[in-house]
Design a protein around this nucleic acid. Sequence first.
DNA 1: CTCCTTGCAAATGATTTGCAAAAAC
DNA 2: GTTTTTGCAAATCATTTGCAAGGAG
Lengths: 158, 158
Amino acid sequence: MGVDTSLKGTLHRRGLRMTPQRQLVLDAVRDLGHATPEQVCTKVQAVAPAVNITTVYRTLDLLEQLGVVQHAHLGHGAPTYSQHEHRHVHLVCHSCGKVDEAPTELLGAVSERTLSEMGFRLDATHVALSGTCADCLERNDPDAADDAGTPETPEGGP
Amino acid sequence: MGVDTSLKGTLHRRGLRMTPQRQLVLDAVRDLGHATPEQVCTKVQAVAPAVNITTVYRTLDLLEQLGVVQHAHLGHGAPTYSQHEHRHVHLVCHSCGKVDEAPTELLGAVSERTLSEMGFRLDATHVALSGTCADCLERNDPDAADDAGTPETPEGGP
DNA sequence: CTCCTTGCAAATGATTTGCAAAAAC
DNA sequence: GTTTTTGCAAATCATTTGCAAGGAG
């Protein structure tokens, strides 16, 4: 370890500049765990109302290029940003939208299989597993809690 | 089986109407495997140029409500639509964007674990696993093809 | 003939871009 | 002082909605 890993150092090594906005965005991402650009913006604006959402987008892109944060697609809507050190698999309930987290080792065996069988290296932290959380399972389907294959066919008649 | 499974029958049972557009959209989804609304639209317009993309969006929504197609989020951009009968897990390469498919049983053990440990029922077909495909692995990283878990952890102390 | 469905145009929501002013080095 | 960064407004892209005309049953 001889490399400067501070945000300031990382920026300076590339001829980029340290600004309060960049620190605030990074802090917000750290704080929120996995948040959309808009959530990050709201958090930042709680401290510095003048910061524009444009800057948040630009800064998130930049921090990702620097390898300081990463984004994952949790399902239907916006990408969410978090830090590499929070390595976990996201479990998104597509009924209530809740995001659970599971240890990446959950996918260890799967990862090995895709690598050896198809040469595909999984990035577990970028994955969002979709399904139905415990609460919604009970709420919608009190006794079919052991079947993982039957599609539910939602109703939508006028 | 006594239930009419044709699109026309499914529609009629709910008081909805069969139209050429709906058949075309369904054919396009079947044909394309997993396609974004825009790709479906392009395919449909190859046959019927007058069909509006609005209709494609509306029809995809409808077909999904009917349980005829489903959508999955494959990563960065648009959702993609496919058929329930093609039950597979998507493996998306976030380097080249290629989409591979794996049998859903790949996630069987994971599914059992999330269900018993967290009460979370996975929907394997809705899942997109992200990572690096064999081609891109070799292209970028010719000899590190056996590591699926060691992170480089960027630091940033307050 | 009666409602459902479509096409169009305009509304919306999220993200990006151009540019001059402000800030960092 | 020079170059990067920011804020704002306008542009863009994807998706949705209102409404009148067109089509299915």
